[in-house]
Nucleic acid binder design. Structure first.
Lengths: 123, 123
DNA sequence: CGCGGTAGTTTCCAAAAGGTAAGTTATAAA
DNA sequence: TTTATAACTTACCTTTTGGAAACTACCGCG
């Protein structure tokens, strides 16, 4: 999913949080600052390359703030900006719908086996 | 974005509406039934192949219903299921946040040029 | 001098997603 | 007989995305 000047602002939102890891990163930032090296521990499978890439994107979109502490060894912390925090309700709703959907599809795959006798589709 | 067994149900939602065209297709279905051949007219750039692919996905996820009318030339209509309709508030929120974001980033790129004298970031 | 720790960047490769264009089927109308 | 139409499917190719692993820089420590 990328580009394309469609009339829907929802498209913009998906371009921002639709990457493979962005949403996961944001979810962990909800609770407060996270160090660079903490992310891969929090998010299994996330590599440094993908982490930097998505963090830069989120930073460029004004959702996260990058704070560098001039220490050795280096320390960099990421936090949500206020704009980033405005995404939390959106994430919550996505979360909530996802849960409903999982319940639904579980129920449905059970049901298929013994209940259904209604017409499934007009055809 | 695909796969990955993370703890966030929001991930599930994004897998469903996160494709390049799914959200656009759903948006047009909000108003009612749409024929196959109407989609490419409604959504510039959408090809038949991508359309079928995403429609099948949405169908498999129980969000849209496919109704075939046995006529020549063929007629196939797609509608939202009730489960599909439950996504509308989600799409609306994505839309709303996207609009806010566009306002924000427009304001920000203006502001950058003359206003800012605050520290941008601790570094 | 070499090691460890943090925060990256870079290179190289594989997989997934997406696009183009042509083919398919069925029938009715010209 | 050819054409047109709707709804697909298929083959082939390009682009995008993602991942593994190595490399850089910095400095203190032993």
């Amino acid at each position: 999913m990328k580009k394309g000047v469609h009339d829907y602002a929802a498209y913009v939102t998906l371009n921002i949080i639709g990457g493979k890891w962005s949403m996961l990163i944001l979810c962990h930032l909800r609770k407060g600052a996270v160090r660079f090296c903490e992310f891969p521990k929090l998010i299994p499978g996330l590599t440094q390359k993908m982490l930097t890439k998505h963090l830069r994107e989120l930073e460029n979109n004004g959702l996260v703030r990058r704070a560098v502490y001039p220490e050795i060894p280096p320390k960099v912390e990421y936090t949500l900006t206020s704009h980033g925090k405005s995404l939390i309700p959106v994430l919550d709703l996505l979360e909530q719908w996802g849960k409903e959907h999982l319940k639904m599809s579980a129920a449905h795959s059970d049901a298929n086996l013994h209940i259904l006798s209604q017409p499934k589709d007009c055809q």
